[in-house]
Simulated scan of single mutants.
Amino acid sequence: MTFRPKFVTFDCHGTLINYDMAGAARRIYGEMLDDAKMTQFIRNFAAYRLDEVLGAWKPYADVVANSLERTCKANGVTFREEDALRIYEEVPTWGPHPDVPAGLAKVAKEIPLVILSNAMNSQIMSNVEKLGAPFCKVITAEETGTYKPQMNGFEYMLDVLGCGPEDITHCSSSFRYDLMTAYDLGIKSKVWVNRGHEPANPYYEYTEIKDIGGLAGVFGL
């Protein structure tokens, strides 16, 4: 029997929105670094962003600035605060992956959609408005007081929705930010959108789809 959740909950940036931190970094540093060094810079930038969200909550502008400063130091590049601000201010301009609007709209006709995002209140709705489907709740890290992959945001979301981990399906392109935590919290129904960010990891018991166009089929829609 196909599981029909009370809500489908989503990571936003990366899963639904084309979260172009790599492109933003290239636009600033691409002329300074050759291809191999730029690739390393982007890898470091992603790793430091994850590290920055593991502690106490701070504004996402600080997450970007701190992780960029650490990346510049590791790669022998001069850090400038205006570069970090430029990257941060790009975030609300980014739109969805091409497969997202139609795929979401099909699911939204049958199941309520929710976002749990490592985002700021002032930025997130600009991204959500580009997704082309209705969301009944949009919950940010600023609201919950912690960033994913910490558990508090998921617990807060379940409280707000008035349901348990057995009642939802959580959908993300990231194990490290979302699906590992969802697994640890007992969320049995998980969907991994394989956007090539991370390798498959079957230990975490998920359904794999290549894009959001495949999501409706998970629920037999």
Rank of each mutant, 00 (worst) to 15 (best):
M1E: 15
T2D: 10
F3T: 03
F3W: 03
F3R: 05
T9E: 00
T9C: 14
F10Q: 03
F10H: 05
T15Y: 01
T15M: 02
I17H: 00
I17Q: 00
Y19Q: 01
D20K: 05
M21C: 02
M21G: 00
A22H: 07
A24V: 00
A25F: 02
R26G: 12
R26N: 08
G30F: 05
K37C: 05
M38C: 03
M38N: 01
Q40K: 11
F41M: 03
R43W: 07
N44W: 11
N44C: 11
R49E: 15
L50N: 13
D51C: 09
V53T: 15
L54C: 09
G55W: 03
K58G: 06
P59M: 00
P59L: 00
Y60W: 09
Y60M: 07
D62E: 15
D62W: 07
A65V: 01
L68Q: 04
C72D: 08
A74D: 15
G76P: 02
V77C: 06
T78Q: 08
F79K: 00
F79H: 09
R80Y: 11
R80K: 12
R80H: 14
D83L: 01
D83S: 04
D83H: 13
A84Q: 05
A84N: 06
Y88G: 08
V91Q: 07
P96E: 03
P96V: 02
H97G: 06
P98I: 01
D99N: 07
V100H: 10
P101R: 04
A102H: 12
A105V: 04
V107M: 09
V107P: 08
K109Y: 06
E110D: 13
I111Q: 04
I111V: 14
P112E: 13
P112R: 09
V114L: 06
M120L: 13
N121S: 09
Q123V: 12
M125C: 08
M125A: 10
M125Q: 15
N127F: 04
V128W: 02
V128N: 05
K130D: 02
L131Q: 04
L131V: 07
G132Q: 02
P134D: 03
P134V: 04
F135S: 03
F135K: 02
F135H: 03
C136E: 15
C136R: 09
V138M: 12
A141C: 13
A141K: 01
E143I: 10
G145A: 07
K148L: 11
Q150Y: 10
N152D: 13
E155M: 14
Y156D: 13
Y156V: 14
P165Y: 10
E166T: 11
H170P: 08
C171P: 00
F175L: 09
F175G: 01
R176L: 12
R176N: 11
L179V: 04
L179M: 08
L179Q: 04
Y183F: 15
D184W: 08
D184G: 05
D184A: 10
K188D: 14
S189N: 15
S189Y: 13
K190Y: 03
W192R: 07
V193Q: 05
N194T: 05
G196C: 10
H197R: 10
P199W: 02
A200I: 11
A200S: 14
A200R: 14
P202M: 06
P202Q: 08
D211F: 10
D211S: 12
D211K: 07
I212H: 06
G214T: 06
A216V: 08
G217Q: 14
F219N: 06
